[in-house]
């Protein structure tokens, strides 16, 4: 079947099989490999994308169910021009929150969503919001510092 959806602001159409996930279509049909595939079971968050403004595990969404949806992946987060970073992306770079980087795209999407929906979230709330995103390298300390940095910049400098 043909599925049409809007990805990172662009209208897209892809030929998909009934069993294929949104993650598969993004990665293999549309060439957007930013979202990752560490578990394919909804346990790790490496595949996180925004679906109509909500964070979802793209591995758990059937591509067919995304018909007509608006999808934002890590590649489309910053918008604007090439090389420009979203506040959260810049904070991850500055705080040293990236090691191997495999968890990073999913965490960036989840953290950006948190910043937008609950800009004043406290430590426990941030931890809870990001607890669906596994990271094996950092122990999360630098990730939490990156989120705190983005939060304080967002309040100082207006909306992200």
């Amino acid at each position: 079947m043909i599925v049409t959806l809007e990805v990172n602001g662009e209208p897209c159409a892809a030929e998909v099989a009934g069993f294929e996930s949104l993650l598969w279509v993004l990665r293999e049909r549309l060439g957007l490999t930013g979202a990752k595939d560490a578990c394919l079971q909804g346990e790790c968050g490496s595949c996180s994308v925004l679906l109509d403004g909500e964070v979802v595990c793209a591995c758990l969404v059937l591509a067919a169910d995304a018909e007509g949806a608006r999808v934002t992946t890590v590649e489309g987060l910053a918008g604007g021009s090439e090389g420009e970073l979203h506040l959260v992306q810049q904070a991850f770079v500055d705080a040293g929150a990236v090691q191997c980087g495999f968890c990073t795209p999913g965490l960036i999407v989840a953290a950006a969503h948190l910043l937008e929906t609950r800009p004043g979230a406290g430590d426990a709330e941030v931890r809870e919001a990001l607890s669906g995103n596994l990271c094996r390298c950092t122990g999360y300390g630098a990730i939490l510092r990156a989120v705190a940095r983005a939060q304080s910049q967002a309040t100082q400098g207006g909306a992200p």
């Binding site: 990752k36 595939d37 992946t73 910053a78 500055d94 040293g96 990236v98």
Partner: peptide, 21 residues
């Protein structure tokens, strides 16, 4: 110095190609 990783930017933008990519 706490120099940032040179590959941090491609990693945060999803443009760093891992083996599976």
């Amino acid at each position: 110095e706490s120099v940032p990783r040179p590959d941090a930017v491609p990693k945060v933008t999803g443009r760093f190609d891992f083996l599976g990519d």
